[in-house]
Design a binder for these strands. Structure first.
Lengths: 220, 220
DNA sequence: TATAAAAGTTAGACTAACCTAACAAATAAA
DNA sequence: TTTATTTGTTAGGTTAGTCTAACTTTTATA
């Protein structure tokens, strides 16, 4: 049985492995920073996780989840994203409110609960941020997605997921009435600063920054 | 902010105060036994709770929740019972499965979550065991209820709540197809051993023990 | 390639929540 | 009312998870 804290370390390692796409290893400081603890603390926990065969690592080396470790981490991610979906769809939480509560709910221990929740939500494939929800067997649905900034002027797309999940960005999206599935047409790209003129659904055209376009995943 | 453990102590004290109806104080051993810890541990925690003004107590004296302590304990009970209702009604958990998971869910910290959950469940007044769900303001609905064993032969009633919440009893009820609201008619009381001949809804008469009749609350 | 900077580890300390063993107070029984 | 029993407390110890400060290893740079 994993402690609340151990679970958080595993989840952090999984998240970091997604971030460093090519090489899924993480460093001690990186992990500590992610979790908001000091490197010394992370080192201690790493020893414990290694003892339990959840990570492979040696002194001064890189950290990698073992198969068991990864399986556990995916199970936690699954819970997190199912709960986010529940909060968003059933309890009317807004996009930027779900994460914090799901951070707590993801640690609830009950296999039945997770599976029943999934069924109750009608087996959703993606969470409110557009991130894939792992299946009970650990499979993670993949959706071909590109950054909005990668599209050509004139092309159309649908919002698939957010890359940046900060409150400020999510609230901005909400203000623009953009959610997962919203249709966007790129009208023009301003060469000067990379900003974009876009049409959201059938609204009036508006301009967004390059930073914006780099924070939103879309589906062609 | 209360820790998970502190919350459990407060909840235990509230539960004990319900049990000892006339005098709501509890003793150290009583509390320790209820929580499955040693008396020494309970003493330590008591000092902490007193420090935080959640209980009144002095060395070798009785323990009593303060107003703040009681308010907190009721909030936890509220969450517990709302979650039980959710699990039972929305996720098809059975009567005897809800408690264990609700024990975990009751510690989730989010005022919005509780209130939204209550709304989602349509402001239920009683949980699956028939116990009252405290309102957001701390009020606890009361339902006039008596033990089945207190009724006269010939009288009819509706199941209001269970006194015994053990798995064995709950499973037995399930087998008899008794839930909250089920109609029961008392046909005969056997003087010899206090057992009862009863009719459940419109089924064939059957006999239940005195222990059974002492474990079920009904409404006349 | 020598050295400075960055990354990671060790040692020692703290807190919360638990324990056991020994003791003290309150209550019940003889 | 003395004594035995029950109830409750204290002292000292353990573990998980955290910290700081000092140290070591690796990596990057001059």
């Amino acid at each position: 049985m994993l402690s609340y804290t151990e679970e958080n370390y595993l989840k952090a390692l999984l998240k970091l492995s997604f971030q460093n796409e090519d090489k899924p290893e993480a460093g001690t400081n990186e992990m500590a920073a992610y979790l908001g603890v000091k490197p010394a603390t992370a080192t201690d926990m790493l020893k414990k996780l290694k003892e339990k065969d959840l990570v492979t690592y040696q002194k001064y080396g890189k950290i990698l989840l073992t198969d068991t470790g990864k399986k556990n981490a995916i199970a936690i991610l699954r819970k997190h994203r199912l709960w986010e979906t529940f909060l968003y769809e059933k309890l009317d939480f807004s996009w930027d409110e779900v994460h914090e509560v799901a951070e707590q709910l993801e640690h609830i221990q009950s296999a039945k609960l997770v599976d029943k929740l999934e069924e109750f939500l009608n087996f959703p494939e993606f969470d409110p941020h557009g991130d894939p929800i792992p299946k009970a067997n650990g499979e993670i649905p993949i959706l071909a997605k590109t950054l909005l900034s990668a599209l050509e002027p004139g092309s159309s797309c649908k919002v698939a997921a957010v890359k940046d999940t900060s409150t400020l960005f999510l609230q901005y999206l909400q203000k623009l009435q953009i959610t997962i599935g919203t249709k966007i047409k790129i009208l023009e790209v301003i060469a000067f600063d990379g900003s974009l003129s876009i049409q959201i659904e059938d609204e009036e055209p508006r301009t967004v920054s390059m930073k914006f376009a780099d924070s939103l995943f879309v589906q062609r």
